[in-house]
Amino acid sequence: MNLDDRDRRILALLQRDSRISTADLAEAAGMSTSACWRRVKALEEAGVIARYGVRVDPARAGLGFQAIVHVQLIRHDQAQVAAFIRQIERRDEVLDCFATTGQADYHLRVLCRDIAAYNAFLEGFLFTLPAVQSAQTNVVLREVKQAGALPL
């Protein structure tokens, strides 16, 4: 789907507040309510709008420990990699997982209640996966910037 300026404006507004009413969205985008509704539906059907959501403050939700984990695999055959990915996808603590170039094969963003919960994640889960050779942890001291919207 080719996005025009109005589509980008709608997307920017929805990223800021996905609960905005269609009427307010249309007004802010400079179009009629019905035309705006049709564009939003088209963006949803095309998969440009993947989902709507809410941002929760991790600390206020009792999740005060965050780390970036650099994982090296010992086995890179397709079956082992697929099994590793399936297991990672099942873990709620793993917010993001990126396959990357460089020394580490995968980078995980992990969020836990505290250091003890993180240690349990490592020892009871990550280090038990057959494909995992090693993991290096960088503890997040504070968030400097967290993008909430794509730069459209």
Score class of each variant (00 low, 15 high):
Met1Ser: 13
Asn2Thr: 10
Asp4Lys: 05
Asp5Gly: 07
Arg8Glu: 13
Arg8Leu: 12
Arg9Lys: 15
Ile10His: 00
Ala12Leu: 03
Ala12Glu: 11
Gln15Phe: 07
Arg16Gln: 14
Ser18Thr: 12
Ser21Arg: 06
Ala23Val: 12
Ala23Gly: 06
Glu27Gly: 09
Ala28Glu: 13
Ala29Thr: 03
Ala29Lys: 01
Gly30Thr: 03
Gly30Met: 03
Met31Ile: 06
Met31Ala: 11
Ser32Glu: 09
Thr33Asn: 12
Thr33Pro: 04
Thr33Met: 13
Arg39Glu: 10
Ala42Val: 04
Ala42Thr: 10
Glu45Met: 06
Gly47His: 10
Gly47Leu: 09
Val48Ile: 12
Ile49Pro: 03
Ala50Asn: 11
Arg51Val: 05
Arg51Phe: 11
Gly53Arg: 05
Val54Thr: 05
Val54Ser: 03
Asp57Cys: 05
Asp57Ile: 07
Pro58Ile: 10
Gly62Lys: 07
Gly62Cys: 06
Val69Ser: 01
Val71Asp: 05
Val71Trp: 02
Val71Cys: 09
Gln72Ile: 08
Arg75Ala: 12
His76Trp: 12
Ala79Ser: 11
Ala79Lys: 14
Ile85Phe: 00
Arg86Phe: 01
Gln87Met: 05
Ile88Met: 11
Asp92Val: 08
Leu95Arg: 15
Cys97Ile: 11
Thr100Ile: 15
Thr101Phe: 10
Gln103Asp: 14
Ala104Lys: 07
His107Lys: 06
Arg109Phe: 07
Arg109Lys: 09
Val110Ala: 00
Val110Asn: 00
Cys112Tyr: 00
Cys112Asn: 07
Cys112Met: 08
Ile115Asn: 11
Phe121Asn: 00
Glu123Thr: 08
Gly124Leu: 10
Phe125Ser: 05
Leu126Gln: 00
Phe127Tyr: 14
Phe127Pro: 01
Thr128Pro: 00
Thr128Leu: 07
Thr128Arg: 10
Leu129Asp: 00
Ala131Glu: 06
Ala131Asn: 08
Ala135Met: 07
Ala135Asp: 08
Ala135Ile: 05
Gln136Pro: 01
Asn138Leu: 11
Leu141Ile: 15
Leu141Ala: 15
Leu141Arg: 12
Arg142Phe: 14
Arg142Asn: 14
Val144Ile: 15
Val144Leu: 15
Lys145Phe: 15
Gln146Phe: 12
Ala147Tyr: 12
Leu150His: 09
Pro151Val: 12
Pro151Met: 11
Pro151Arg: 12
